[in-house]
Amino acid sequence: MHGITWEDPFCAEGNSCFRLGTDANGNGYIAVAGHEDACVKDSLEALRVLIRDIKAGKADHLL
């Protein structure tokens, strides 16, 4: 996808590697590393809330 700045992959235990990205329009993206063309897109704030909830153990089953 063009216009998205991807961060380095974050790899947890096992083979789960994810990438976070942003674009110039204030959107945030989450994708499985190597499959950035099939990413989830939302506002940066919505993705921040999702990531905070996952880190807090509220949504660990999503990953």
Score class of each variant (00 low, 15 high):
residue 59 A to V: 05
residue 7 E to F: 01
residue 35 H to I: 00
residue 2 H to W: 10
residue 9 P to S: 12
residue 36 E to Q: 13
residue 18 F to T: 11
residue 63 L to T: 08
residue 21 G to H: 03
residue 47 L to F: 02
residue 44 L to G: 01
residue 32 V to Y: 05
residue 48 R to D: 14
residue 31 A to Y: 00
residue 59 A to F: 05
residue 34 G to F: 08
residue 19 R to W: 00
residue 51 I to W: 06
residue 8 D to G: 02
residue 9 P to N: 07
residue 25 N to T: 06
residue 7 E to A: 13
residue 39 C to A: 14
residue 36 E to F: 04
residue 19 R to N: 11
residue 39 C to D: 15
residue 28 G to T: 04
residue 32 V to L: 13
residue 24 A to S: 15
residue 56 A to E: 10
residue 10 F to N: 10
residue 61 H to G: 13
residue 23 D to M: 09
residue 38 A to W: 09
residue 52 R to Q: 06
residue 53 D to F: 02
residue 19 R to V: 11
residue 8 D to V: 05
residue 11 C to M: 04
residue 21 G to Q: 09
residue 13 E to R: 09
residue 42 D to I: 00
residue 15 N to C: 11
residue 30 I to N: 09
residue 48 R to F: 12
residue 43 S to G: 15
residue 43 S to Y: 00
residue 49 V to E: 10
residue 42 D to G: 13
residue 30 I to M: 12
residue 53 D to Q: 12
residue 33 A to I: 01
residue 43 S to V: 02
residue 42 D to M: 01
residue 43 S to C: 01
residue 5 T to L: 14
residue 40 V to E: 14
residue 57 G to E: 03
residue 54 I to T: 06
residue 17 C to Q: 02
residue 42 D to K: 00
residue 3 G to Y: 03
residue 29 Y to S: 03
residue 10 F to D: 13
residue 39 C to N: 11
residue 56 A to Y: 06
residue 8 D to Q: 15
residue 57 G to T: 04
residue 5 T to H: 08
residue 12 A to G: 14
residue 54 I to S: 03
residue 60 D to Q: 14
residue 11 C to V: 07
residue 54 I to W: 12
residue 32 V to S: 05
residue 33 A to M: 03
residue 15 N to Y: 08
residue 46 A to I: 01
residue 56 A to N: 11
residue 8 D to H: 06
residue 28 G to D: 03
residue 5 T to K: 14
residue 42 D to N: 10
residue 20 L to F: 08
residue 36 E to C: 08
residue 17 C to H: 02
residue 54 I to H: 09
residue 27 N to K: 10
residue 37 D to V: 06
residue 62 L to Y: 12
residue 17 C to P: 10
residue 14 G to D: 11
residue 62 L to M: 12
residue 53 D to S: 12
residue 46 A to D: 04
residue 56 A to I: 05
residue 17 C to S: 02
residue 56 A to G: 15
residue 62 L to A: 15
residue 34 G to P: 14
residue 40 V to T: 08
residue 37 D to W: 06
residue 27 N to Y: 12
residue 55 K to T: 07
residue 4 I to E: 06
residue 20 L to I: 10
residue 39 C to H: 14
residue 22 T to W: 04
residue 28 G to L: 01
residue 63 L to Q: 05
residue 14 G to N: 09
residue 62 L to P: 07
residue 63 L to M: 10
residue 58 K to A: 15
residue 15 N to K: 07
residue 22 T to I: 09
residue 56 A to D: 14
residue 42 D to W: 00
residue 38 A to C: 08
residue 47 L to P: 01
residue 29 Y to F: 15
residue 22 T to E: 12
